[in-house]
């Protein structure tokens, strides 16, 4: 083929590596996602809390600045420990959820509603690579508001604090990464699974909100009616909170009594694992080049 000659010619050039080919999907997805100024503005706004936490670290190491600003009674907030980073992750986790609910439901539904999946899978591109590519869209985006800024905060704190703090608290970095990964995996897989099952983006978003909030309400109703605590297994936000508390070794306080704290931490882990597996199963069932009517 040639624009001028207009004849068909087979391709004889080189090919890109198959191992990194799934990264084409996020590249195209971002170019279309960030056409939306609202999303861009929100994404930038997601990093404002990081700046506030950064400021907290700065002030905690600068008594002069504290004195100049007459900061009294802020010792609890300025105490940089595992609880500080757990708070950071909890806050960013909420923003993550909003981002995932915004971006995720449109990722696969657009391909399915346009019947474009056979075009991907008729090429040297597998279903796994397709899911991995779509997962990377959300994974990279959510990483930029969770563990990446979290590690930045940790690095700044480690730099400003003495060696003793680092030697006692280095595990916080691992908790930060693991806690973020679990949340990102859960949100991304859920958004992709709903996107695959419900071809209409708005419905998929509504379902995602429903699973987080309506299901939690349902769990509470079960608790009330059956006078049990196991209704909490439907409460995903509570389960992730419990897992984070476990990871950051933050002791339970009254805030959690009657909440997620009612459940043992293994149950929280099991809930998240089950839900993630269920999402993978949904994706496996739905992502087929040709749907077979049985």
């Amino acid at each position: 083929m040639s624009v001028n000659k207009r004849v068909y010619r087979p391709y004889a050039g080189r090919y890109t590596s198959e191992k990194t080919r799934f990264l084409i999907l996020p590249r195209y997805a971002y170019s279309s996602l960030f056409d939306s100024r609202f999303l861009l503005a929100f994404f930038v706004a997601c990093n404002i809390p990081t700046l506030l936490f950064l400021a907290a670290i700065y002030f905690s190491h600068n008594p002069l600045a504290q004195a100049m600003l007459q900061m009294k009674g802020t010792e609890v907030f300025l105490k940089i420990d595992n609880g500080f980073f757990e708070k950071f992750l909890r806050f960013q986790g909420l923003l993550c959820f909003i981002l995932a609910a915004w971006v995720g439901p449109g990722l696969i539904s657009a391909d399915l509603s346009n019947d474009a999946l056979p075009l991907y899978l008729a090429r040297p591109f597998s279903r796994t690579e397709y899911v991995l590519g779509k997962f990377t869209v959300l994974g990279a985006l959510l990483s930029l508001v969770t563990w990446i800024p979290g590690l930045l905060l940790f690095a700044v704190q480690a730099d400003l604090a003495d060696w003793t703090w680092f030697s006692k608290s280095y595990w916080i970095a691992g908790s930060l990464i693991l806690g973020s990964f679990i949340w990102i995996a859960l949100l991304s897989l859920m958004a992709l699974a709903f996107s695959a099952w419900i071809k209409w983006k708005l419905s998929a978003t509504a379902l995602m909100l429903g699973v987080f909030f309506a299901l939690a309400g349902f769990g509470e109703a079960v608790n009330e009616i059956l006078r049990t605590k196991w209704g909490k297994i439907f409460n995903l936000p509570a389960a992730i909170q419990l897992v984070w508390l476990d990871l950051f070794q933050v002791p339970m306080n009254s805030r959690f009594r009657g909440g997620a704290g009612d459940l043992p931490s293994w149950a929280a882990w099991a809930i998240l694992l089950s839900f993630t597996s269920f999402c993978l199963l949904m994706l496996n069932r739905k992502l087929k080049a040709r749907e077979v009517v049985r």
Partner: peptide, 19 residues
């Protein structure tokens, strides 16, 4: 997605459309 590098993909896309 078929494995063509970005530049070649762009070039051949234009050719295919004209073709």
């Amino acid at each position: 997605i078929s494995g063509l590098p970005a530049n070649e993909a762009m070039e051949r896309t234009h050719e295919a459309f004209f073709y």
